[in-house]
């Protein structure tokens, strides 16, 4: 087994040792948004996520997941498909919320990163409904759409109290039944001070952690083994800048659709999805 890597702490130490005034090229402190990211990605965030397994419960029931190896394949596939789509939606939502929150419209003119997004072409409520429709078009399974909206609604409710923001209020008004979770996450991330990349990271990460935790609970897997799987996943590979909502990634996962629909029809179930 690998012991604690001896090289890594030195590298991290060098980074962490920088004076807090040190800034990145953007002019922001290097730690900008990180606290919000940690809070949003924490499984203890009281937003209902703990009751969703992302198809893992049904996969455990049918035997598609029975141990760490197939759990690893499940998580990799989930990240590469649903995770990629969630990350793109969260990125876009966070960027749009940033654009809406800028007091000065001029700052959205060409040259500013927000200018290429679609947020500026519409009023905020219309824009949120449009992005939500783009999410809908990427989620064929009604069971998954319902689970996504439920989680989104709970997250908005929670985030509004933690990080009150105009964008969260507007989103809640625009999609009263609950926006899809990655959109809620992106807007909450903006309210929490995160960048679009951080919002996308939170979405990519939470797209697999619920399933991993569910497998630990349901199969009694060694939690350290499972956390190692989580640590080895290529989160960065599913995060990219997005500037055209209609062209956002749309990676489908037919097995997840089947699992989600079967899950709703399974009599004994512990998780909502």
């Amino acid at each position: 087994m690998d012991g604690p890597a001896t090289g890594a702490p030195a590298v991290n130490g060098a980074t962490l040792g920088l004076p807090p005034t040190q800034t990145a090229a953007s002019g922001m402190p290097l730690t900008h948004g990180l606290a919000g990211l940690l809070l949003l990605a924490d499984s203890r965030l009281p937003a209902g996520g703990h009751a969703h397994s992302g198809g893992a419960e049904e996969a455990c029931r049918t035997g598609a997941i029975s141990g760490p190896e197939d759990l690893a394949r499940f998580l990799r596939g989930r990240l590469a498909t649903a995770g990629r789509v969630a990350a793109a939606l969260a990125w876009s939502a966070c960027e749009a919320a940033q654009a809406f929150s800028r007091p000065d419209k001029e700052s959205r003119e060409p040259g500013s990163p927000a200018s290429s997004g679609q947020a500026r072409v519409a009023d905020p409520e219309t824009a949120w409904r449009l992005l939500d429709a783009e999410a809908d078009a990427r989620i064929a399974s009604p069971a998954q759409r319902l689970a996504g909206r439920t989680q989104g609604r709970l997250l908005i409710r929670t985030a509004r109290r933690i990080w009150p923001s105009t964008a969260l209020e507007t989103l809640a008004r625009a999609v009263p039944d609950g926006a899809h979770h990655p959109i809620a996450l992106g807007v909450a991330a903006q309210a929490a001070g995160c960048t679009p990349d951080q919002a996308a990271m939170a979405a990519a990460y939470t797209s697999v952690t619920g399933a991993a935790t569910a497998a630990v609970r349901l199969l009694g897997l060694d939690p350290v083994t499972v956390h190692r799987l989580l640590a080895e996943l290529p989160y960065d590979s599913v995060i990219a800048e997005q500037h055209d909502w209609s062209a956002l990634p749309a990676h489908a996962a037919p097995a997840l659709d089947l699992l989600a629909e079967q899950h709703l029809r399974t009599e004994v179930r512990l998780f909502v999805s």
Partner: peptide, 21 residues
């Protein structure tokens, strides 16, 4: 009915979002 993902106490104590909803 609210489902609790194996953790009934979590749903009433640590993460009450689904119940409040």
């Amino acid at each position: 009915a609210v489902q609790t993902g194996c953790c009934p106490h979590t749903a009433i104590r640590d993460d009450i979002a689904a119940n409040v909803d």
